[in-house]
Design a protein around this nucleic acid. Structure first.
Lengths: 156, 156
DNA sequence: GTAGGAGCTGGAGTGCACTCCAGCGCAAGG
DNA sequence: CCTTGCGCTGGAGTGCACTCCAGCTCCTAC
């Protein structure tokens, strides 16, 4: 990635806010070579040019869709080769696209499974039945309809 | 979960093969109370009734869609209460359904981002241009089209 | 000038979700 | 009877991807 430092640049804080990565993670990513090195300003601070900000976004998407950091590193290493690695980079992304499509299919299945179970509970509640299909006792009926989960997690 | 042990049961190996969890993970899940305890046969081995096999599948789907084990444990703990916790269990699943929908939206975005980048590379390759829009040198053109990624990962 | 905030670097620490290991028992087959 | 394979339990270990910490510099505002 030939960074010609023209145009606007943004600091690490702003990149973090827009990318979903933490400031620490951005630094770690650079150290781990998951991102090209961001140029430094005269004060030693990172200044991300627009192009690099876009690259961060792509890397975040690759991570978010499950690409291991070793593979991301490979992608970034290829990027250092310039145009000579376009085809290989493209192939890497095409493989990831296949992965994403698989995840989408799996997610649809899982959504259906969860939805099916929700429907099952709803039917039981409406009919006032327990899991064996027997009527629930009157003193249980109110509790059966309760949807409030009393946990400390709710408070946070 | 009132397990009436009638009907067929399957051993841990078979449950592992069909659930996507390893045998070790199934044991860990039970120990961590992410699954109800599977009844043991006369030889001390786990025998999973059909109902429990279905529950394993649901728990796997919840994990796969990002539910932390602490929340899965909560879900399982509620299941111990029988019909009295139907509503609360349903609410938990409804929240997870919302999460899954969010993931689907995010995945679609990420797919689009990857696809867009793939298209970008393809255009550059077809036009024989580099990232700056300049024609690539003849000795680079062949490499630019290469899609074979030479890594040890490919061999495994 | 001083204080405070932001960011730098290098190194250590952490959280999460498993996976591996060791010793044991049981059952089937030779 | 012996061997082998499967599964049990409890405890330790591991991999992955960050996050935290400490000491430092620079810059701005008071």
């Amino acid at each position: 990635m030939t960074t010609v430092e023209t145009g606007t640049t943004v600091g690490i804080r702003e990149v973090a806010e827009h990318s979903g990565l933490s400031v620490d993670a951005l630094r770690w990513y650079e150290r781990e070579r998951l991102l090209p090195r961001a140029p430094r300003g005269p004060d030693g601070r990172r200044r991300y040019p627009e192009r690099l900000v876009g690259f961060v976004r792509l890397v975040v998407a690759l991570r978010r869709t499950g690409m291991p950091v070793a593979d991301v590193r490979e992608f970034v290493t290829l990027a250092d080769e310039g145009a000579a690695s376009h085809g290989r980079r493209m192939a890497l992304l095409e493989r990831q696209r296949e992965n994403i499509l698989r995840q989408q299919a799996q997610l649809a299945d899982d959504l259906a499974a969860v939805g099916h179970k929700i429907g099952h509970y709803r039917e039981l509640i409406v009919a006032g039945l327990d899991c064996e299909g027997l009527p629930v006792a009157p003193e249980v009926a109110a509790a059966q309809r309760l949807t409030t989960v009393q946990t400390e997690r709710t408070a946070s």
